[in-house]
Design a protein around this nucleic acid. Structure first.
Lengths: 344, 344
DNA sequence: GCCAATTTTGTAAGCGTTTACACTCGACGT
DNA sequence: ACGTCGAGTGTAAACGCTTACAAAATTGGC
């Protein structure tokens, strides 16, 4: 079937139908001031009747908006990001924006390239949503000065809207859960590892662990804090290292659920298991955690993406208004499942 | 830091520097014929020197390309799609295209809306990559006639390039693995379920199961074929149904790994396990399958996304050439792990 | 060497918006 | 009544590119 060539309805058509000038139509459609209610009604009517949609290309070229926003993720495959991206995409789509996905693929060079051409980017999108991107000062400044609307998830001290969780509190809660179960000989498989972009998060969680112990007048045994990265394999390796070269603690806080999965796997391979030989709790409430019965701290992943997205849209809509950037922290919640239990 | 307002380098600048006309520059940059090698060299040189990038908006408006492609997915959160999307995005980015992500969010209304305005879409992107989208005849026709370049993953009988796997063969191989282990009393937790978009895939896999049994002169027991959907929860429920209201087979083929996860979970909740009480094999080689020791049939997920993406880019580059659409099927491979073992 | 055929190059007219600026027209103060 | 002001509207010039079409330069055949 060859599709009938629809002769694109332009702003001209709307102007003609409404009996007004192109200029007035343009203003009315964009809700600019200085348009009489009467004219506005006529225009809206005509536009609706014709099913008119402004051409993003023409709009952009003439200095208007592109009608699309970018989501920048460290990697699109991780559960957390996929989740947040989908939620944000939904908000964007519902607001009439296209979502352009930019994955850094954990490669610094890609990030460099991207930030080297922010001018190019700002020509293609109206705003960007950053998900857990580690920014250099220069990058941050460049972005802030690029004219792009910006919002982010899981970032700190940024001059734009941000939404995230309190990682330190999450780790503290998790640790206290362990403590409350009578465990006092605690290990942490921290996410911290050279090269990891989520360094900040990982450090915060480590701090939460330390503070919780401190609050109970316990000291952390350096032997029981290992860098595991935020991956299954990292968790597995760290767990093996812990058992073979350090010593088995009575309970473990994993930097994130994936780390915990790796630990669980190592345990199983050694003929051990949680909570029998050791209690394990993670952070994130990964989709699979429920499946594996992993105790964890849940965070509202989709909500963070959606919330940040809507903040970005807000900015886009009331561009220019001073409206100081705000930082929103969302709630986390302890989910006790089967991988932790009272110390014998 | 306020960014210095770069006074955008336009095609004019390139023309001036190269001492040629705008028109020649435009042609040279797009590798059109009728440009002398000499001119081409000068232009490329000047463009490089100036770091010139054509404005997508202006280009599009004047009838050129938008420099972006859309990836359409049923849902962005599923492991398979996240994987394929990232791989495709990499290809697109490397080819200089922006990737706009469109998730149908498993909602038919979103799909309707999208296909109702293909003209609008074709104004914003040059091509689309479809991932496992179930298309009505009308939608297929509309897309084919939209002028958009199209490629897809996991689809059938489409008038554009497609890459996928042989689902029937995959299921057959899996089934034969079970058969080869001495199991003959086989159940299948099929992906087929009303409302699922991947119906086709599911049916093919079911057929593979049946054919494998048939080839060994075995008949499939209707009691042992349950609809489970392509989800963990579906697998769990189906497994419970199987055990409580049907009967325990000696081995199970799960429609996909997620289904198998659910089955494994149900088993565990009932104090049973694989392969002790029943052998289980899945299809997909989900990231977690390795972790869980699930035997499965692996398919090259990222490769499919990347391959389809590159086919799409190819189309875009040599637009117009007849070049008939081709269907590529990628290899699958049996991965025997710990969830299957020889029948006692 | 000359003219037609064939490249190669340039000119200028869009593409569909936005926006600076000019204009019209009542309302208002005096 | 009369100039002033401001809200509402229109005119026309960008925006940066593509592309007919025309012009110029090159080629080739005799």
């Amino acid at each position: 079937m060859q599709q009938a060539k629809t002769p694109r309805v332009t702003i001209q058509d709307v102007a003609a139908l409404s009996g007004l000038s192109i200029c007035t139509v343009s203003r009315a459609l964009r809700n600019l001031p200085n348009v009489s209610v009467h004219a506005r009604a006529k225009v809206d009517d005509a536009a609706a009747k014709l099913g008119y949609k402004a051409s993003p290309a023409a709009s952009r070229l003439a200095g208007g908006s592109t009608g699309s926003v970018a989501i920048i993720v460290p990697t699109a495959t991780a559960w957390f990001f996929a989740q947040a991206v989908e939620a944000a995409e939904e908000i964007f789509a519902d607001s009439g924006y296209d979502t352009v996905l930019i994955s850094l693929r954990s490669r610094p060079s890609v990030q460099h390239q991207l930030f080297a051409d922010l001018a190019g980017l700002s020509q293609r999108v109206d705003g960007v949503l950053l998900l857990n991107i580690a920014l250099s000062d220069a990058e941050l400044a460049a972005l802030a000065g690029s004219g792009l609307a910006v919002a982010s998830v899981g970032m700190h001290d940024v001059p734009w809207d941000n939404v995230g969780i309190d990682n330190e509190a999450a780790a503290r809660t998790a640790t206290e859960h362990l403590l409350g179960l009578g465990h006092w000989d605690l290990a942490m498989l921290s996410g911290s590892e050279a090269g990891e972009p989520s360094l900040v998060t990982a450090n915060e969680r480590l701090r939460g662990f330390e503070h919780a112990l401190g609050a109970h007048h316990l000291t952390v045994d350096p032997d029981l804090v290992l860098a595991a990265g935020y991956s299954i394999e990292g968790g597995r390796l760290a767990m093996i290292e812990l058992i073979e070269n350090r010593r088995m603690p009575s309970a473990i806080l994993a930097g994130c659920d994936e780390t915990a999965f790796g630990a669980l796997m190592a345990l199983r391979d050694l003929g051990l298991s949680a909570p029998k030989n050791v209690s394990i709790i993670g952070i994130d409430d990964h989709q699979m955690s429920w499946f594996l019965g992993l105790s964890t701290i849940s965070q509202p992943v989709a909500d963070q993406g959606a919330f940040a997205a809507s903040l970005l849209i807000d900015r886009l809509h009331r561009a220019g208004l001073p409206n100081p950037p705000a930082s929103h922290v969302l709630e986390t919640k302890l989910i006790a499942r089967k991988s932790t239990r009272r110390r014998r």
